[in-house]
Amino acid sequence: MSHVYIAMSGGVDSSVSALLLQQAGYQISGVNLRLFHNEDLGESREKTCCSLSDAEDARMVARRLGFPFYVFDFSQIFRDTVIQEFVESYQRGQTPNPCVACNRSVKFGALLHRVLALHGDFLATGHYAQIVRSTTTGRYLLKRGADRSKDQSYFLYMLTQEQLAHTLFPLGGLHKSQVREIAAEHGLINASKRDSQDICFAPDGDYATFIERATGHPSPTGPFLDETGHILGQHKGFVRYTRGQHKGLGLPTEQPLYVLEKDAETNAIRLGPDSALWEDTLIAEHMNWISIPTLSAPMSVTVKTRYSQREAAAVIEPMERGRVRAIFDEPQRAITAGQAVVFYDGEIVVGGGTIC
């Protein structure tokens, strides 16, 4: 009997994943990850998706289903990798994706390493994605989840062949409505619990305040510049703005202005019209390939440059130092450094990287 450790956040997805694995005959152990200490989050700690009440919900589900439950303290690695990368990326003028960093360093990094060290066979999570194995190449493939509205394959592009071989996504073939129905039928306490929408360590989306608390000082101010370098006014803090942003600029201008560029050396933010945000090319680095060993020739794919974005057709081609250039069939709006870019071949994730 294979032993599966299921990462349990206290939400309905991971709880139903545990139930389905148990019904399939696996030996189950539940694991909740402690990612924060009180001093990390201040007064907002109970608003996060990893609060003490969430951990207790996970424990109660494990007790009801009758399998062991453990709490692993990964707060140090979370602070050193996810939070530190998040803060430093914003300070460089980029817009990072902390969920990707957490999956890479914590869930499928430190946690999977711990699971294998404990002689577990698989790590399971409640992600909406699917893993299959190619009958022609033998490679493990990452597919979109059946529920397109919940598909999380974008956040999982960094998974290696070794990680995919030891990972299970029990919800990959289900829709969210089905998951809630299963939870209700089996009396799970979180059947109607709302999904977390915010960055887990920055509830209500107030990432700027979190960064200022983490660094111990306010984000530096600087000038708003137009496209010619003329000063339009002063902004309220360098990290408070991201490419493509229009709201909250506070400038009395006749024409709408948007954030075009950020200069971390001078703390200047360049503004301009929406038309200046559209581009037909991006370059990405820190690539990870899933369906292919590496990109050795141009390839037609569809591309997502943000999780909420519908993918667009493009041709990707290899560059020096492992970088990749994507040339879109049609210009894309507000391509942003620091964000993940993920390439698809139909339902299959080809690979992905970080926009640079």
Results as ranks from 00 to 15, higher is better:
Leu168His: 00
Leu116Thr: 04
Ala214Asn: 09
Ile131Gln: 12
Met158Asn: 06
Arg144Ser: 05
Val115Glu: 08
Ala183His: 03
Ile199Cys: 15
His127Glu: 03
Phe224Val: 11
Arg148Phe: 06
Leu159Glu: 00
Ala146Gln: 04
Leu168Gly: 01
Ala165Ile: 06
Leu171Glu: 02
Gln130Leu: 14
Gly145Leu: 08
Arg139Met: 07
Leu171Ser: 08
Phe122Glu: 00
Ser219Gly: 13
Leu159Tyr: 00
Phe224Asp: 12
Ser177Ile: 03
Asp147Ser: 07
Arg139Ser: 09
Tyr154Gln: 08
Gly205Lys: 04
Phe108Lys: 02
Gly187Lys: 04
Leu142Tyr: 02
Gly138Trp: 00
Ala117Asp: 13
Gly222Ile: 08
Met158Ala: 04
Ala165Arg: 04
Val132Cys: 13
Val115Ile: 15
Thr215Leu: 09
Ala117Asn: 12
Tyr128Thr: 01
Asp151Trp: 00
Phe122Thr: 02
Lys150Phe: 02
Pro218His: 04
Tyr154His: 10
Ile131Asn: 10
Lys107Asn: 10
Ala183Pro: 09
Thr167Pro: 14
Arg194Val: 11
Lys107Trp: 06
Phe108Asn: 01
Phe108Trp: 10
Thr160Leu: 03
Ser192Gln: 15
Arg180His: 08
Gln152Glu: 14
Arg114Pro: 03
Phe108Val: 07
Glu181Ser: 14
Gly172Arg: 01
Ala214Pro: 06
Ala202Met: 10
Ala191Lys: 07
Gly126Lys: 01
Leu188Ile: 04
Thr221Met: 12
Gln130Ser: 13
Phe224Ser: 07
Gly138Gln: 05
Gly187Ile: 03
Ala202Val: 11
Cys200Trp: 03
Gly126Thr: 04
Thr167Ala: 07
Gln197Leu: 14
Ala124Arg: 01
Leu141His: 08
Leu111Met: 08
Phe155Arg: 08
Gly172Met: 08
Asp151Cys: 07
Gly138Asn: 02
Lys193Ser: 01
His119Glu: 15
Ser149Cys: 05
Ser153Pro: 01
Gln130Trp: 01
Ser134Pro: 02
Ala124Thr: 01
Thr160Gln: 09
Gly172Asn: 02
Phe224Lys: 03
Val115Asp: 08
Ala110Lys: 14
Leu171Trp: 02
Thr167Arg: 05
Ser196Ala: 12
Gly172Thr: 02
Arg213Gly: 08
Ser134Gly: 15
Leu171Met: 13
Glu212Ile: 07
Lys193Gly: 10
Glu162Phe: 09
Met158Gly: 03
Asp195Pro: 12
His175Ala: 04
Gly138Thr: 02
His186Trp: 05
Thr221Asp: 00
Lys193His: 09
Arg148Gln: 12
Val132Leu: 09
Asp147Met: 09
Arg114Ser: 12
Ser149Leu: 12
Tyr157Gln: 06
Tyr157Val: 06
Arg213Met: 06
Leu123Tyr: 06
Glu162Cys: 10
Arg114Phe: 10
His175Gln: 07
Gly126Phe: 00
Asp147Phe: 04
His119Lys: 15
Phe210Met: 15
Thr136Gly: 00
Thr215Gln: 12
Ile189Met: 12
Leu112Gly: 01
Pro203Ile: 11
Phe122Ser: 07
Val132Ile: 05
Ile199Asn: 08
Glu185Pro: 03
Val132Thr: 13
Asn190Thr: 13
Gln130Glu: 15
Arg194Pro: 02
His166Ala: 13
